[in-house]
Amino acid sequence: MAIPYFPGCTLKTKATGLDDSTRATLAALGLEVAELPEWTCCGTVYPLAQDNYMGKVAAARILINASKEDDGRLVTVCSFCYNVLKRVNHAIKNDEETRTKLTQFLEEEYAGETKLVHPLELLRDDVGFDTLQKKVNNKLKGIKVASYYGCMLSRPAAEMQFDEESENPTVMEDLVSAMGAEAVDFKYKTTCCGSYQVMKTYDLVVKKVREILEGAKAKGAQVIITSCPLCQFNLDWIQEKIAEEDSSFDKIPVLYFTQLLGVALDVPVEKLGLEKNYVDPKPLLQG
């Protein structure tokens, strides 16, 4: 039975590589997902103002629609979508006023039954890293990978309940090891890349991006992986800008974890959407 899947807006436009590689790798591992019918934008960010209920309506509608499918779960891979859907679901489950306001507005009965899951959790819990290890080729052998989680997967800890330690998650490193590559630990893995400030406080984002890239490279990383299209963009596109001004700058490819997994699973490269990456990962991946 297929698990309902919510791609989100960015995966249908700029981040098709994340959408394609997620579908292809899950399929290669025998996990069937089916796009949730008639989905809308999730709202992107969780409203932090107590009285902003409108900012939660879209996510609530998506969660309710998912609850009408048989599976009981909803899979989403974009870190922002995952964050806002999970937080809205948490609010519906735990805060009576939010639940009443949203369900009355949407004229639905819903108390937070949908279980939101990230593909990283599916890989860990449904496939299992031991099983995955037996299915991968040896193409990534010796490649050093820095796992970049950013903000949205694990904060706030009490609501996201993502991995054991919110400040030091390890699920991506465990995935990297299972894929046959080498995980490097680096201290910037849950720092913020500067996010949407790229459009307003650009210099701040360049500074954050440099810290993250240099931190990963200092540990010997040859590639950075993420599940967030905005982190991916900031880390990838800004490198090209830095390199235009500083010819000595060493670029490092920034991939979605699903793209790297696709390589390890022999998914045909045209299904991984690598051509949209700014820093070309092919030289590294073709060894």
Partner: peptide
């Protein structure tokens, strides 16, 4: 503080959609 006209075109055409929706929601 975030006004569409002030975003450099080079960025506007390249940023992922979520940057626009999140930025406009917050700013």
């Amino acid at each position: 503080v975030l006004v569409l006209e002030d975003i450099p075109l080079e960025l506007l055409t390249e940023v992922p959609q979520m940057a626009l929706t999140s930025g406009f929601r917050k700013l």
